[in-house]
């Protein structure tokens, strides 16, 4: 089978782990091991005898371009990091999503817009497995998430924020971020976790809030704390639900810089739900538009903004007049 792919395999071990990681520069050796244990148990369960031995050939494979399958084969990373295929989700008689497909390539920022009730958050809840689709499938890194329990999602490399901010109110900001780190630190080290959490808080200019409780912090700051918690889980795919809430125009501009920085510096793939059109249109590589659970448009920001169906359902006439 390996020969069919024209690639080589070798026994699973410490340095194989980087294959599964989008950007190995972010991990130290301890974490490679920890990551392997937490993420890809299959790696260790693979039969060593089934695996080929050519180490050298592997060096040519950029970790972001290939993955190891459950049975130990190294294959090119599929085109789409996330592939949502014909997904339908119903709640009682209401069809929240009907046959929706969406593909995201590694390193892309994809905007998801649409009227309230269009199914955007439902889509997030399907990808993070809070819901199970009634129909269709969701592939992450080629792996079908349909049978993955919600508690394994973060360890696979998917992290999210929530529209209405879901933080632990009786824990400090730092401790909240530490919860994100817990998902990926194996073996867990409190000291290293705190160091990482503080590093992320500083990176997002939240350092001064570490010891504060969320209550009493402004909404825009809480949204950023959620972003910090998501980043602490070291995701490859980040789902952001309205990150611009509570921010003025200038602050939204800063947030756009932060989001581009995540894409550029951390090689993150980002799915962005947002009503702030300046933000969506300035950072997204592609934009998808939902309305009543169906996709009504998809394209570059420019194409979507000019689409009459999108103007009618979502942007409204005033926006067009202003543009």
């Amino acid at each position: 089978m390996a020969q069919q792919h024209g690639q080589t395999m070798r026994p699973a071990g410490l340095d194989d782990v980087q294959i599964a990681v989008a950007n190995p520069a972010r991990f130290d050796a301890d974490e490679h091991l920890a990551f392997a244990r937490s993420v890809d148990l299959d790696l260790f369960e693979a039969e060593a005898s089934d695996l080929a031995q050519d180490d050298a050939a592997i060096q040519d494979w950029s970790p972001s371009k290939c993955i190891r399958t459950a049975d130990g084969h190294i294959i090119p990373r599929p085109m789409a990091l996330l592939a949502i295929e014909d997904v339908t989700r119903r709640f009682g008689g209401i069809v929240a999503l009907a046959d929706v497909s969406l593909a995201m390539e590694q390193g892309q920022i994809v905007g998801l817009i649409g009227p309230n009730g269009a199914g955007k958050t439902t889509l997030f809840n399907l990808v993070t497995r809070l819901y199970r689709p009634n129909d269709g499938r969701i592939l992450f890194d080629g792996k079908d998430l349909t049978r993955t329990p919600a508690h394994r999602i973060a360890r696979l490399g998917i992290a999210r924020t929530f529209q209405n901010v879901v933080l632990f109110q009786h824990m400090t900001v730092l401790e909240n971020v530490l919860v994100g780190a817990h998902a990926r630190l194996r073996p867990f080290s409190e000291r290293r976790g705190r160091k990482q959490a503080q590093y992320i808080l500083d990176y997002l200019e939240l350092g001064e809030f570490g010891r504060r409780l969320p209550g009493g912090l402004p909404f825009g700051t809480l949204k950023r704390v959620e972003l910090a918690r998501a980043l602490a889980a070291k995701p490859t795919l980040l789902l952001l639900d309205e990150p611009a809430g509570g921010l003025n125009h200038e602050e939204v501009g800063d947030l756009a810089e932060v989001i581009r920085g995540l894409q550029h510096d951390l090689d993150l793939t980002i799915l962005l739900v947002e009503h702030h059109m300046n933000l969506v249109m300035s950072v997204s590589d592609r934009v998808h538009v939902l309305n009543f659970g169906r996709k009504i448009a998809e394209g570059t920001p420019g194409e979507v903004q000019a689409d009459p169906a999108v103007i009618e359902a979502y942007l409204g006439a005033e926006r067009v007049a202003a543009a």
């Binding site: 309230n116 529209q163 359902a313 979502y314």
Partner: peptide, 13 residues
């Protein structure tokens, strides 16, 4: 307090 929060442009209008 921020009635537009989380709302689509048409709904804000």
């Amino acid at each position: 307090d921020e009635p537009s929060l989380g709302l689509a442009p048409t709904v804000v209008q």
